[in-house]
């Protein structure tokens, strides 16, 4: 039973179609990665899920409630962190955190202090003086200090240093261990790889790929590096070999998963000395879609 279910979400801004039939499902206790190039429609989807924009067509439910009609009720269970945190310049960070927690309901002071400590945040400064990363911390502390059931995070770590990024990942892991669900949109693919159970890739307003990381990898290639005793022959006869690089008895190439078996059988005749295989990174996966986009269109305009 998915806790978040969106079907056929479409959003048009005037003539421009930002979302074109987006479907999405998120199960309880799951971390869902939502990735895609700039301007693909991630933030737009998230704003619809938060009841800030009204979908032109399609519908979405969270915890079985309509995201537009029951927005206020729903938000008591949801914590949101945008990628660009805008704060009231003349309030201090501490005041804003209190406000945010109060707006959600059920503030937890103990957790607040603990997170301020962990994120090494000074809550007594006016918001206008905060750096990008510090503004981000305000929203992160307010989100994780609240006892939400679903975390919606839209590029939450933009501007955080690697140390803080690590603390963020710990927070997500803790939330997951506590059975909470997370929707994470991010351009930091290593972060998505480390945290997410399932991934959806969006491009030009359409979901073009979805599944667990393993499932997605299955669709793609594995990197192989091989050293043999004898020179390999007839390699050209095989389909499914890409980016072949040869240097004496050393070879490296990418191989389509479905052709793997036949190729390894062929190579083993030549006496394998060394064989290294690496699963494709999310980045490899993503690059293919990026490149796909460049071939089919000239981009969809700026972000937000």
């Amino acid at each position: 039973m998915p806790i978040l279910k969106a079907t056929g979400l479409t959003k048009r801004f005037g003539k421009f179609t930002a979302l074109d039939g987006v479907d999405m499902e998120l199960n309880k206790g799951e971390v869902y990665g939502f990735i895609g190039p700039n301007g693909a429609g991630k933030s737009t989807t998230i704003r619809i899920l938060l009841g800030m924009l009204k979908a032109t067509a399609g519908e979405a439910q969270i915890f079985g409630k309509d995201v537009w009609k029951d927005a206020v009720e729903l938000h008591k269970q949801i914590a949101y962190v945008p990628g660009d945190v805008n704060l009231w310049p003349n309030l201090t960070g501490g005041e804003v955190i209190d406000l945010f927690m109060k707006m959600r309901g059920a503030p937890n002071q103990g957790r607040r202090e603990e997170l301020i400590e962990r994120f090494k945040f000074d809550p007594t400064k006016k918001s206008r003086t905060y750096s990008k990363g510090n503004r981000q911390k305000v929203a992160l502390i307010a989100a994780f200090a609240s006892d939400a059931d679903l975390y919606i995070l839209d590029e939450p770590t933009s501007g955080l240093d690697p140390l803080m990024e690590r603390i963020f990942q710990d927070c997500v892991q803790e939330a997951k261990d506590a059975g909470k669900s997370v929707l994470l949109s991010s351009h930091i693919l290593s972060e998505v790889e480390r945290l997410c159970d399932r991934v959806g890739i969006i491009r030009q307003g359409q979901i073009i790929e979805r599944g667990t990381l393993d499932e997605l990898r299955h669709l793609t290639r594995t990197n192989l590096t091989i050293q043999t005793k004898e020179t390999i022959t007839n390699l050209d006869e095989f389909v499914g070999i890409h980016n072949l690089e040869k240097e004496g008895h050393n070879l490296s190439f990418q191989v389509d998963t479905e052709e793997m078996d036949a190729i390894i059988r062929h190579i083993s005749q030549f006496g394998i000395i060394k064989l290294e295989s690496a699963p494709p990174t999310l980045e490899d996966l993503f690059m293919r879609h990026y490149q796909g986009e460049e071939q089919t269109s000239s981009g969809t305009g700026g972000s937000r």
């Binding site: 704003r47 927005a71 938000h75 660009d84 805008n86 704060l87 406000l99 707006m103």
Partner: peptide, 17 residues
């Protein structure tokens, strides 16, 4: 205009309130 109302509406605050 300054993208500050999103701070309310992403939390449990209604438009009417």
């Amino acid at each position: 205009n300054k993208h500050l109302t999103e701070n309310y509406y992403s939390r449990a605050v209604s438009r009417s309130r």
